[in-house]
Computed example of a mutant assay.
Amino acid sequence: MEKSERRPITLAASLAGLRLIGAGAVLGLALAVPASPAQADPPRPPATTQDQPDEAPES
């Protein structure tokens, strides 16, 4: 049985592969962790309306 010929791999290619593996691991963890329920904003008091005349006085 012959040994397979090994090709040198550049540093840039190996780093790109490691980044891809790391991104897959992060994505896998993000999908595996149960999502916490989103916290709702506290209820706001009703907006107060100011009494304004229907027609503005002409000057």
Rank of each mutant, 00 (worst) to 15 (best):
Asp41Pro: 15
Pro53Lys: 06
Ala40Trp: 00
Leu15Cys: 03
Gly28Cys: 03
Ser14Ala: 04
Gly22Pro: 02
Pro37Met: 09
Glu2Cys: 13
Thr10Val: 02
Ser4Trp: 06
Ala32Asn: 09
Gly17Ile: 00
Leu29Glu: 10
Ser59Tyr: 13
Ala32Gly: 13
Ala35Arg: 15
Arg19Val: 10
Glu58Lys: 09
Ala23Arg: 04
Lys3Met: 03
Glu58Pro: 15
Gly17Glu: 11
Ala13Val: 04
Ser36Phe: 14
Gly28Asp: 07
Glu5Pro: 08
Arg19Cys: 13
Gly24Glu: 02
Ala38Gln: 12
Gln39Thr: 13
Met1Tyr: 05
Leu29Cys: 15
Ala56Gln: 07
Gly22Gln: 01
Ala16Trp: 06
Gly28Arg: 01
Ser14Val: 00
Thr48Tyr: 10
Pro53Ser: 04
Ile21Tyr: 07
Ser59Asn: 08
Leu29Lys: 08
Val26Phe: 06
Ser4Ala: 15
Ala23Glu: 00
Leu11Cys: 11
Pro57Cys: 05
Ile9Asp: 08
Asp51Phe: 12
Pro45Gln: 12
Ala40Gln: 11
Ala35Tyr: 10
Pro45Arg: 02
Asp51Ser: 10
Ala30Cys: 12
Arg7Pro: 04
Pro57Met: 02
Arg44Val: 15
Ala47Gln: 03
Pro45Leu: 08
Arg44Pro: 07
Ala40Cys: 06
Glu2Ser: 13
Gly24His: 03
Ala25Gln: 01
Ala40Ile: 06
Ala30Met: 07
Arg44Ala: 15
Ala40Asp: 10
Ala30Tyr: 10
Ala32Cys: 08
Ala23Gln: 02
Val26Ser: 09
Ala38Val: 14
